[in-house]
Design a protein around this nucleic acid. Structure first.
Length: 360
DNA sequence: CGCTTTTGACCGGCGC
DNA sequence: GCGCCGGTCAAAAGCG
């Protein structure tokens, strides 16, 4: 979700009540309408309600406009991002191949057709896995740097709440993964599982899954890289049969009731981090996204399933952008400071309106 | 039989 | 240089 770095989610939106606010005594702003209502005791209740409604409508329409603007900004960013990715892939395609890991073993030269071709074409030393003649040390480090930056920019971290009793590290995200390792790390007694995308042979995406050290019912999955293939339509073993859309937010229904548990999706792109609070069920249930209300994970453990990738395809989907916008709106409206600012803005506008009309 | 998972060994990076 | 640690390999076992 790199585009969030370009989206200013601060409250300094185009709605600018500041000149008005400066005229408003501070205690009125902080009083959250109570002081305001006291001042208006002598006013007719109908006028007050009508004005408030009018103002509310105006703010709503403004909010709608801002939402549309945000959508446009997101779309523009995604278009630019895709262009940049295309450009980078054409520029670094050879470099990426030639800088494949230094620990290439027998299996990789067999299983990875890309590297295999490269080996054939360039007489690469299979034991060392590196074409020492084809790239000078400067170029090599440069290639490596570019590759690392490229990968680094596509790191996605997803955390989700699961049943604490569920010891598996299975994260259902619609892709096909092959586990290739498990390790107990120093800072976390829970083992970390390493997965590789097994849908396409050359897909470079890797996934690390580990339970949170603070709350072991939370599973943290770290995705690295970008899928070079569409999401697999093949259902995962025992999983739901319609798992194929990457942009889906799955809410698993267990025993006929939609469960909603605290769950945050933290998408990190080595820069700004946005945390999507998926706690509020209505923000999920009423969404016009492909959802799966009738499926239960094989273990029955994952009460909410969050699917995300760093692929441009996913980010480009309008439903995802709509989802993101709504999540932003939800997060904003949940924020007390945002509420205070909104209240101040509305009261300021009311004051301004009343000053202009001379009514109070 | 083929695919996936498990698991001990191995490798490279990094800090000291 | 050495040891620690995270990441990966690959043989063996498991599974459908």
């Amino acid at each position: 979700m790199e585009f969030t770095s370009l989206v200013d989610t601060s409250l300094d939106l185009s709605f600018r009540p500041r000149p008005v606010l400066e005229k408003v005594p501070k205690q009125e702003v902080q009083s959250d309408f109570t002081g305001l209502s006291r001042e208006k005791e002598n006013m007719g209740v109908k006028n007050e309600a009508g004005d408030l409604l009018e103002e509310l409508n105006r703010v709503s329409s403004e909010n709608k406009k801002l939402t549309e603007m945000l959508t446009v900004v997101c779309e523009n960013y995604n278009a630019l991002r895709n262009q940049m990715m295309e450009y980078m892939s054409t520029q670094n395609g050879v470099a990426e191949d030639s800088s494949a890991g230094s620990r290439k073993r027998k299996a990789e030269s067999i299983s990875n057709p890309i590297n295999n071709n490269y080996n054939n074409n360039n007489n690469m030393d299979v034991v060392h896995g590196r074409s020492s003649e084809s790239c000078s040390s400067d170029e090599e480090s440069c290639c490596k740097k570019l590759r690392e930056e490229h990968i680094k920019a596509k790191v996605t971290i997803v955390s989700m709440k699961t049943d604490a009793s569920d010891t598996s590290l299975i994260v259902k995200d619609g892709y096909q993964w092959r586990k290739y390792g498990q390790k107990v790390t120093r800072d976390n007694p829970c083992p970390r599982a390493y997965f590789r995308c097994s849908f396409a042979p050359g897909c470079p995406v890797k996934k690390k899954v580990q339970r949170s050290v603070e709350d072991q019912s939370i599973v943290v999955a770290t995705y690295e890289g970008e899928h070079n293939h569409p999401q697999t339509s093949k259902p995962e073993s025992g999983a739901s049969t319609n798992t194929s859309t990457a942009s889906r937010l799955n809410v698993t229904t267990i025993a006929g009731t939609t469960t909603s548990v605290p769950c945050s999706t933290t998408l990190n792109s080595s820069g700004p981090t946005i945390t999507l609070d998926l706690t509020a069920p209505k923000t999920v249930e009423k969404r016009d996204m492909k959802m799966n209300h009738s499926t239960t994970s094989p273990t029955g453990a994952n009460s909410i399933r969050t699917t995300t990738t760093t692929g441009g395809e996913y980010q480009n989907r309008p439903e995802f952008q709509q989802f993101l916008i709504e999540q932003m709106a939800t997060s904003l409206t949940k924020d007390p400071s945002f509420k205070a600012a909104l209240a101040a803005a509305i009261s300021g506008k009311i004051l301004q309106h009343n000053n202009q009309t001379g009514r109070w």
